[in-house]
Simulated assay, not measured.
Amino acid sequence: MIIPARYASSRFPGKPLFPLRGADGVAKSLVQRSWEAASAIGVPASVWVATDDQRIADEVAKFGGKVVMTSPDCRNGTERCAEAADKLGDVDIVVNLQGDAPLTPVDAIAPLIDLLEQKPGCAMATPAVRCSPSTYRHLVEDQRNGRVGGTTVVFDEDQRALYFSKRVIPHLPADHDLAELPVFLHLGLYAYRTGALRDYAARPPGTLELLEGLEQLRFLETGQDIAVHPLPPLGWDPIELNNPTDVAAVEAALAERGMR
C-alpha cells in the first residue's frame, strides 16, 4: 500500500505535517494518522509513504514508517504511486490510500482487490459512500461558500464510474427527501493494476482532469473503466482534510470514533 504525500499545496501548504488531535487529546501529524489507518489492516511492513519532500520523509522515519522518495515532477498522487511502484517492483496491484483521508474505512480495501479480479476490464477500483444528510449538508455548504470540499461520483448500473466532480452530483431539487440521497461521496482510496498505472503515467492530463483537479478523470478520459464499490452511510462523516477549515470537523470525527 502506498500513501502519496506532498508538502506543496495551494490550499493547505504542509498539510501532511499538520497535527490533528485524536480522542485522547494527543496530536499526531496527518501523515502519521494516514499511515496508522493503512497499517490497521495488519501488514505495516507493506505500507510505504511516497514523497518528494525531506521534511515529510523525516516525519515518517520518526514514527517508524517506510519511505520511497519520488520526483517533484509528479503531478498528482497517482503519478507518484506509479513511480513508487516502479521503484518497489514486483507488484501486480497497488493500493493508494490518500494522505488527506485518515477517516477512510480500511475494510473497504479487500473488496476493491476483489472487484479488480471480478472485472478484468477495469483499470482501477475505488469506493464511494452514500451520503448521510450531515455529509451532504457539509458538501453543499462547502460548495455554497466557494470551498473545494469532497468529491462525488456517479456510476452506471454495472457500478462503473460515469464521472467524478468536486461539485455535488447529481444535482438535487431543493425539496428532495434527504433520507434517500442518491449522492455518493468518493473516498480517497484506489486499487490499480500496475500496468494501468504505467499507462496512466505515460499520458498527459486531459481537459476534464485539469478543470476539476481530479487525477482519476484521466482514466475515464482515455476510455478506461473504473469500478466503484458503493458503501452505505458509515455512521460518521468521512471528511477529508482539504482545507484548514476542515480541521475541527476531522478532529471531532476522530474523537467520535475513539481514534487516538
Results as ranks from 00 to 15, higher is better:
W48S: 05
D92S: 14
K66H: 08
R55S: 09
D52V: 04
K66C: 06
A37H: 06
A8H: 12
P44I: 05
A8W: 11
C74Q: 08
G25I: 04
V94D: 05
F63V: 04
N96P: 12
F18E: 04
K28T: 09
G77V: 01
D100N: 11
T51Q: 03
S34W: 03
A38H: 06
G89K: 07
D53E: 14
A38I: 06
V95I: 15
E59Q: 08
G89F: 04
A40E: 13
A85K: 06
F12W: 09
R80I: 07
G25H: 11
W48Y: 15
K28A: 09
V47A: 11
F63K: 05
V26N: 12
C81A: 13
E36W: 10
G99W: 02
G77K: 01
K87M: 15
L17W: 03
G14V: 07
S46A: 15
P102E: 02
S39K: 09
R33A: 00
C81I: 10
K15L: 09
G14C: 03
R55V: 02
E83F: 03
A8I: 13
I41F: 15
G64S: 06
D86R: 14
V94R: 06
A82R: 00
P13F: 08
A84Q: 05
L20V: 06
V26K: 09
F18W: 10
A8Y: 10
S9Q: 07
S46I: 13
D24P: 03
E79M: 11
A27I: 01
L20H: 01
E79L: 10
P13C: 09
G77H: 03
F18C: 01
E83C: 09
R75P: 03
P44Q: 07
A45V: 08
S46M: 13
E83A: 11
L30S: 02
K62I: 09
V94S: 10
D73S: 15
E79N: 02
E59T: 00
R33G: 03
A57S: 07
V60S: 03
V31H: 00
G77R: 01
